[in-house]
Amino acid sequence: MAGNKNRKQLLKEPDQFISFSTKMMNYIIKHKIAVLSSTGIVFALIIIISGIRYFSIQEENKSFALMEKALARYETLEKEKGPEKAFEETQKDFQSIIDQYASRGGGRAARIAFANIAFQAKNFDKAVDLYKKALEDLSDDSSLKNMILSSLGYSYEGKNDYENAEKYFNMIVKGKDSLLKDDAVFNLGRIYAKMEKQDKSMEFYKKLVDEYPESMYIDMINEKISDS
């Protein structure tokens, strides 16, 4: 403690500090190249880290900008030539974004957008492939998960692969998220009818009436049940 030190010790402490500072300065002067190099490395690391962060933001922005541009081009072509031709003429644009920005938000969004475009063009094989890869990008609690599962169900139905369509619609029904659950119940009723499983089809139609009385499909299903 300073209060317990005598005058001689107190006078000696500044000399020790000056001596240490002098030694430190002499060391820096003597080894200035090495010290400046070390300092330069530290500053370079700071610049690189900051640059990576900035670059990351820039890359995200760029990926979304390219996706928006590709979508705008698709929409124009779709109006002029229809979904099939628009798909053919924009697939390189979307694939380039997906390949280059696979880990970026824009790249993942482009994959979903391109899957929708493939579906509209009735290229169901391509749609299935893209939707499955999009599903891998999502966490289990993602709000988009049921939308992708539903899209896979519709895509497999487009391929007349009703067993796989049933599989993906059932994943929604059995999941925790309520989004599109009534749609999935309705779609399972349709799919089982196409599979000529009429009892199973009616089971899901009745499930819709009992559990989702506010569903947009309710009037249609009530009419179907009453006619059966």
Rank of each mutant, 00 (worst) to 15 (best):
A34T: 13
V35P: 12
S38W: 06
T39Y: 10
I41L: 15
I41W: 04
A44Y: 10
I47P: 08
I47M: 03
I47W: 14
I52Y: 11
Y54P: 01
I57L: 14
E60A: 10
N61K: 11
K62W: 07
S63A: 04
A65Y: 15
M67Q: 14
M67I: 05
M67D: 04
K69T: 14
A72T: 14
R73S: 06
Y74M: 13
Y74A: 01
E75F: 07
K79F: 00
E80Q: 06
E80R: 04
E80G: 02
G82V: 04
P83H: 08
E84S: 13
K85M: 09
A86R: 07
E88T: 13
K92F: 03
F94D: 09
I97M: 03
I98E: 09
D99A: 03
D99S: 13
D99E: 15
Q100E: 15
Q100W: 00
Y101I: 05
Y101D: 11
S103R: 07
S103M: 09
S103F: 09
S103E: 14
R104V: 01
R104F: 13
G106V: 08
R108N: 13
F114D: 12
A115S: 12
N116A: 04
N116K: 04
A118E: 11
A118D: 10
Q120I: 07
Q120E: 09
K122F: 03
N123L: 04
F124A: 00
F124V: 12
K126A: 14
A127F: 00
V128G: 07
Y131C: 01
Y131P: 01
K133Q: 13
A134L: 06
L138H: 05
S142Q: 10
S143E: 14
L144S: 09
M147I: 10
S151R: 05
L152M: 07
S155W: 00
Y156H: 09
G158T: 11
G158I: 09
D161Y: 12
Y162N: 06
N164H: 12
